[in-house]
């Protein structure tokens, strides 16, 4: 049972991590990195580290996304409807 849960979590985490590298849209990449943090927080719970899980959920999935999102906005790179990688 735990093995299946762990398998699903790890696959989700690695898929989201790949999305961070491959998604052409920066806003989407930030959302994916936030998802990675969320899954990592769940893995911390499975590993019996509730303190670390709370920190990771609050910082990684919340505050870090806010910092990066603000950064993208101030950098003038905030584009939501960006289709292909070529039309930057």
């Amino acid at each position: 049972m735990t093995e299946w849960l762990a398998l699903i979590l790890v696959v989700m985490m690695l898929a989201a991590a790949l999305a961070v590298v491959l998604v052409p849209n920066l806003v989407g990449a930030i959302a994916a990195s936030s998802a990675v943090s969320l899954v990592v927080a769940v893995i911390f719970v499975v590993l019996r580290a509730p303190d670390v899980a709370m920190t990771e959920a609050a910082v990684g999935a919340g505050l870090s996304a806010a910092v990066l999102g603000l950064g993208v906005r101030r950098l003038g790179l905030w584009k939501l409807n960006e289709g292909k990688k070529d039309d930057a």
């Binding site: 303190d51 920190t55 505050l63 806010a66």
Partner: peptide, 24 residues
């Protein structure tokens, strides 16, 4: 979360981040 840091999961770091989010 900050004040119950010595009893339950949580503490200054976690609670501090939530306070920062609240003020922001």
């Amino acid at each position: 979360i900050i004040l119950h840091g010595h009893l339950t999961p949580g503490g200054g770091f976690q609670g501090g981040v939530i306070v920062a989010a609240a003020l922001f």
